[in-house]
Design a protein around this nucleic acid. Structure first.
Length: 245
DNA sequence: CTCAGATTTCCTGTTT
DNA sequence: GAAACAGGAAATCTGA
């Protein structure tokens, strides 16, 4: 298993394939002009969120509330904030099952009671804990990550494969992500994607994780102790940084 | 074909 | 108890 790029995976069967090979390594599917680097979702009224900011919001909501990601149809949230704000409780329930009301309430609170930039956790319906109230003590993997449903294409870039099926850390984008920390949200789904790439339908997360553990010795990955499904690229990993060519 | 390295498979035991 | 983690051992794959 070598983490490298050369091909592409379409993360959403209903969407256009991601625009590689013109896209630089590990870039967001949404350009900076859409606000990815300029502003974070909690600084903007949800009506004006980009698709990426919708994802950021969803990721953090899942993490902070420890929602069951497996019941959320993430492709249903490949939408802008305008569309998100127009969704009814019924829409959310269809898209996210029993956690739909949590998503709905979050959007509702942000729409009507949002105090962008300061009251984020309250608007997320978070049960406030010391760790969450104190951003300075937030551990990197805790915040959020990219959340996608499993979907396939014939070929895919393993860098994008990782990016789109692992969790990176948008809220601390410039620190943790730049350090190569990532987390699996759906371990078995990632394993199935890996098996798909290797034409091995019997791949499991147990096997995938064994291969990944061999990477520790080669320093392609570094251990991240005490954090389940969290990995970090090591000094011998190539091609995962934004500015890698 | 051979070989070495990478990956997969299976396993036991431990940790969360 | 389930899921994840750790790592040994052997089998299998792959490319030079």
């Amino acid at each position: 298993m070598i983490l490298q790029r050369n091909s592409i995976m379409n993360i959403n069967p209903s969407a256009n394939p991601l625009p590689l090979p013109h896209q630089p390594a590990w870039t967001t599917p949404y350009s900076t002009c859409e606000g990815f680097f300029a502003t974070q979702w909690h600084d903007v009224h949800p009506q004006y969120w980009t698709k990426y900011q919708v994802w950021e919001w969803l990721q953090q909501l899942v993490d902070t509330n420890q929602l069951d990601a497996s019941c959320i149809a993430f492709q249903e949230f490949d939408i802008t904030g305008e569309r998100l704000c127009s969704m009814t409780l019924h829409d959310f329930t269809l898209a996210a099952g029993e956690v739909g009301h949590i998503l709905y309430n979050s959007v509702h609170n942000l729409k009507w009671h949002g105090n962008y930039g300061s009251q984020v956790l309250q608007s997320l319906n978070v049960v406030i804990k010391t760790e969450q109230a104190d951003h300075s003590s937030m551990v990197p993997w805790k915040d959020s990550g990219y959340l996608y449903e499993t979907c396939y294409d014939d070929v895919y870039d393993s860098k994008l494969y990782c990016r789109n099926n692992l969790s990176m850390t948008p809220n601390q984008y410039t620190t943790d992500r730049s350090e190569g920390v990532f987390r699996f949200l759906k371990s078995e789904a990632v394993a199935q994607l890996w098996g798909k790439k290797k034409n091995n339908s019997s791949m499991t997360y147990e096997k995938l994780s064994r291969a990944m553990r061999y990477y520790y010795k080669r320093e392609i990955l570094e251990r991240v102790d005490g954090r389940r499904l969290v990995y970090k690229f090591g000094k011998n990993a190539r091609g995962w940084r934004e500015n890698d060519s």
